[in-house]
Amino acid sequence: MFALGLRFLATVLFSVMLLLVKLTGERGISLPETLFWRQALPAIAIFGWLASRGQLHRLATKRPWIHLRRAVIGGTGMFLTLGVVRVLPLAEATILGFTTPMFAVILSAWMLKEKVGPWRWGAVLMGLMGVLIIAGPDTSNLPPFGLMVGIGAAMTVALVTVQVRDLGRTEEPLTVVFYFSALSAPVLALGLIGNDFDHDVTGWLMLAGIGLSGLLAQITMTTSLRYGSVASVMVVDYIQLAWATFWGWLIFDHLPPTSTWIGAPIIIGASLLIAWREHVRFRTPRPAPSNV
């Protein structure tokens, strides 16, 4: 129950972060600046917290180049993930993020040479069908550019998942989060050149809120996996769609059309099917049967 509670809190924090990203866009704050503060504030907070406790040794790593690669890929993914909420409604942007498990299956088969059977390939096709339903013939709901950004974000996050899985073998979660933020922030700072920083108090509070909510979301998501399995806690992630729909209705007076309500359960069902098959595979003590 503690793990589920942490995961639920993470969905709230992440939905608030995306809401603030969209609101800063409405106020004319550039995406590069938003990304910079999203990364810089967590890095400063983690370093300061460890320094105050005399635990900077926890940041020691023997895999700096792997962290750098993860930062490059993760920074690209974050640019797309935060960028899509500026071109699409919150609910639709969130739903496209749920396609990440499908692309993780594809990348696992391609990069890790993992055997993928009919169940998971079927789930991939099922999820892509859900995306087609949401897109529909009327592009006013889901414009092609927004769809491309959303799919690109999901693919990049899936690639990051493979990278983090590798780093998790030797690094603690706090170290992974720190180097991701610390290595990407200086690069993102280049996007600040020529920016207008004449924000009002509300704008600066929103930027601070993005950094704080993003950091806490990462920590609660990671910590939830210490007290519960991936299969048991990831189901809670789909509550994020409810939050995105709620914020979209409350703040932007937007409710998803019928096509979204039809396609979303298909995408969620596909990702749950993938999660279930992963759970079955890793609990099976013998080699996986041919129909996995």
Rank of each mutant, 00 (worst) to 15 (best):
G77Q: 02
V21C: 00
V85I: 08
M102A: 12
L132A: 15
R120S: 05
G75W: 07
W65G: 08
E33P: 00
T139D: 04
V21H: 00
R86S: 03
G127T: 08
V84T: 13
S140W: 05
T76V: 12
M126H: 07
L96D: 02
W110E: 07
E26R: 06
F47E: 01
I66H: 14
A109I: 04
A60W: 09
R53S: 10
W49T: 14
H57L: 11
L56Q: 01
V131H: 04
T34I: 09
V16F: 13
P64I: 03
G127L: 04
F103N: 10
R53K: 15
I95L: 10
I134Y: 09
S15W: 08
S140F: 06
G130R: 04
A91S: 13
T61F: 04
G122E: 10
W110K: 06
T139A: 08
F36L: 01
V85F: 12
M111C: 11
K62F: 07
L56C: 05
A93H: 05
I95E: 02
H67N: 02
G130F: 01
L23R: 08
M78N: 13
L23K: 10
L142A: 04
K22A: 08
L80Q: 01
A135W: 09
G75R: 06
L31I: 03
R27C: 05
A135F: 13
I133T: 09
T99M: 12
Q39I: 09
S30M: 11
L59I: 08
H57Q: 13
P101E: 12
I44R: 02
H57A: 15
M126S: 12
L112T: 15
L96Y: 08
G74P: 14
W49Y: 15
A104F: 03
R86I: 01
V84C: 14
G74S: 09
R58F: 01
W121M: 14
A45N: 09
L90S: 00
K22V: 05
S30A: 14
L88I: 06
G75A: 07
W37F: 15
G54S: 12
G75T: 07
G77F: 05
W65E: 08
L96A: 04
S52Y: 07
G130M: 00
E26M: 11
A135Y: 12
F36E: 02
H57V: 14
G127K: 06
V84Q: 07
F98P: 03
